[in-house]
Design a protein around this nucleic acid. Structure first.
Length: 156
DNA sequence: GCCAACGTTGGC
DNA sequence: GCCAACGTTGGC
């Protein structure tokens, strides 16, 4: 059973083009427990929509695949990192994450405005007002609807 | 730049 | 354990 997710990133920090270039990326720096718990629930082979947040062109821009799960986020141990967590220890790390591989960049961005038009906040937490969650599941109903309306290269 | 909607922290 | 103050995300 393949699950679908959506992960937000500010393109100024890390964009779909960065992932397209690097091909593989460790999704480090998540410091929210709900988001982390979703990361921990991912399985190898799961697909994740890549969402550009906090930018002029907000929306889903591509797709990536989980290739390694339950990876200990190394930035939690690095005092020089923005994501350093002094309460985390190597013996009992707090933050686990996922390594992703680039799948596709969509020809056309699925804009936030489109998503707001298509889905209610009930259906899709992404479009819920004030929602800040950076990692969330995407229901199969939403995936099907997106597939019906857009050509989503890489979505099966 | 504003501010809604949280999540976290720390005093008690 | 409560909750006020503070910090952050992210749309607008």
């Amino acid at each position: 059973m393949k699950n679908y997710w959506l992960l937000k990133s500010e393109p100024d920090v890390y964009s779909i083009d960065d992932l397209a270039r690097e091909r593989i990326s460790l999704w480090d720096g998540v410091r929210n427990y709900q988001a982390r718990n979703f990361l921990k629930a991912m399985s190898v082979g799961d697909l994740a929509f890549f969402y550009h947040s906090n930018t002029t062109h907000k929306g889903i821009v591509g797709l990536m695949e989980a290739i390694e799960v339950l990876v200990v986020d190394p930035t939690q141990f690095d005092p020089g990192s923005d994501y350093y967590d002094r309460k985390a220890t190597v013996e009992s790390p707090r933050w686990h994450t996922v390594r992703f591989q680039f799948v596709s960049k969509f020809t056309d961005i699925i804009t936030l405005a489109d998503l707001q038009y298509l889905f209610s906040g009930e259906e899709f937490p992404l479009v819920r007002r004030g929602n800040r969650l950076s990692v969330m599941p995407v229901s199969t109903a939403i995936v099907a609807e997106l597939q019906r309306r857009y050509s989503l290269s890489g979505v099966v």
